[in-house]
Design a protein around this nucleic acid. Structure first.
Lengths: 314, 314
DNA sequence: GTTCCGCATGAATCGATAG
DNA sequence: ACTATCGATTCATGCGGAA
């Protein structure tokens, strides 16, 4: 529909004032146009920057982004690409990034961290636990831990262990009053409701027996006639195994879920470890502005070409 | 089949030497008969003791039990029943118990701890993370963290939060060389096999095309007739609704899975927070000896009557 | 245009072998 | 001894060419 174009400073300023709103400052505008690839599609700006995120983040204004969704390199993983951070140095390595993320996130924004500790010497490493504690000390609230259940995890059988089929999705916030659009992620209702409801008497369906405040009966009438329900904090998603090009850290559905849950259209999404750019691409398709940072030049080129390709599809 | 009887010291000694094996000592025998309810069913001894577990555990000999499966009172939960341990005192409260458990577990035994931190002031409490770190300091190996996905509880929603649908199942060990009977918990293979293989030609079924040594082709013949596979570290179990007399919802399938995975028949299972006695009852039905400890007299009575009832069923 | 099948590939882990 | 590399193990899924 629209051709991909680099935005000028002037254009970036126009986008910013139109879609980001009142809080636009000269630094916002300078940032949006600075040295990155700014593209338009359905009025959304996607911006990918090359560099070490703890440096590049310094260019982003305070209280600027609505959501951070990222999957940093795990300890001792992806050694070829990222050099591999040893488990015992991991917290120390991450904290400077955490501090910057805390600064650039809006007070009502959310930070989602996808991570899982590896097995080391027959034991689970503890660096993720220590990271959670350290981030709290840094000022983050540890609001929730979602589980990503990977149905098609890597196979294998060992004497003392089964396949690792889940990863952590840690939710951190700056304040307790963060934005959350729960209706945006409702899912088709499960069979359990029909099972439960068919045995209820008519009076049960009408009566609001909110006696103990925590029972099934209380809200029962609400479920009647509904086709969707709220999900829970366990996400069931397969990993993507394309035999095409390089591997994406996570499937599109993962960032999509959090973007829909924690942002509205034209909000700003940040991924400081952009990797193959899944978060940016999904944000763009959901009409959210996005900022990505990636340290490996080849990946930055790849992301740019992917974003362009998406644009050409429209 | 056999009537439920209290075992005398002499009888306990006979059971111990016959079913527990060479390691029987006078203290074992004394323990088995001491002040508890010892019952027989298919040659299995079930023993429930009244008291605070950190005291009662002292009566159990060193290196005595093969598996510990327990769900301690969570912080600030079940205040009426257990007095409610404040989150910030939880580690301190648990560690003396942890030390005794470390002593009574056999070197090749396993300790499974079912726990989940509550939300406090809008944040997840960190006492479980701190407990893991503290138990490691105490000498435990943190071998694995299983996820129990509670799939059938009804949807719930709060302004900033979805329903909590999972709990931690922390696996700790004394040594790296623990017993594990993986074949005992194999599960039905995924539907994809039938979808994929139903139309294979007969020659394909016979031919072993192990050309490149990896992938589906190599093992295609292996999948034929294969009906079970090894599970992963995410357990999909419904919560049980019929917990009439006890507040802890602990479905039979949960201890059953770990008992089958980490013990063989006539091994000894311990639950230091026996609650409604699910672990003991399941152990008994799986022909494992069991020891339970429970601080609330009413629950001990309940467990005794449940165990008797199970016996009468046979 | 469907459906079907061959193949590749995963944020894996262990134990053995090699420097 | 202590680290680095390598092969073997194993299940679910998407893609693409074939029927």
């Amino acid at each position: 529909m629209s051709k991909a174009d680099l935005l000028s400073v002037k254009e970036a300023g126009e986008w910013a004032s139109r879609y980001i709103g009142k809080n636009v400052t000269p630094s916002n505008i300078a940032y949006l146009s600075y040295n990155g690839l700014c593209k338009e599609k359905n009025s959304v700006v996607a911006n990918i920057k090359l560099g070490d995120c703890k440096d590049v983040l310094e260019e982003i204004p305070d209280d600027f982004v609505d959501l951070i969704v990222t999957s940093p390199p795990y300890a001792d993983r992806r050694k070829q690409s990222y050099g591999g951070i040893p488990p015992d140095k991991y917290v120390e390595w991450f904290l400077p990034v955490g501090r910057e993320l805390l600064r650039v996130l809006k007070p009502d924004g959310t930070f989602i961290l996808n991570i899982k500790e590896k097995v080391e010497n027959g034991e689970r490493s503890t660096y993720v636990l220590e990271l959670i504690l350290a981030l709290r000390k840094q000022g983050w609230l540890w609001t929730e831990e979602f589980v990503w259940h990977k149905k098609n995890s890597y196979p294998g059988k060992w004497p003392n262990r089964f396949r690792d089929a889940w990863e952590r999705l840690l939710q951190f916030n700056k304040t307790k009053n963060f934005k959350m659009y729960q209706d945006a992620v409702k899912i088709p209702i499960g069979d359990w409701v029909n099972e439960r409801l068919k045995n209820l008497s008519e009076t049960d369906k009408i009566r609001d027996n909110a006696k103990n405040g925590s029972g099934f009966g209380k809200n029962i009438s609400n479920w009647l006639g509904k086709s969707t329900v709220y999900p829970d904090n366990v996400l069931h998603l397969p990993t993507e195994c394309n035999n095409k090009n390089h591997s994406a850290a996570f499937p599109d559905a993962l960032p999509a879920w959090f973007i829909k849950l924690f942002t509205k259209e034209n909000d700003i999404v940040l991924d400081p470890f952009a990797g193959s750019g899944t978060t940016l691409r999904v944000a763009q398709n959901l009409n959210r502005h996005s900022i990505g940072i990636e340290i490996i030049p080849e990946y930055v080129d790849l992301i740019k070409s992917n974003l362009e390709q998406e644009l050409r599809l429209f």
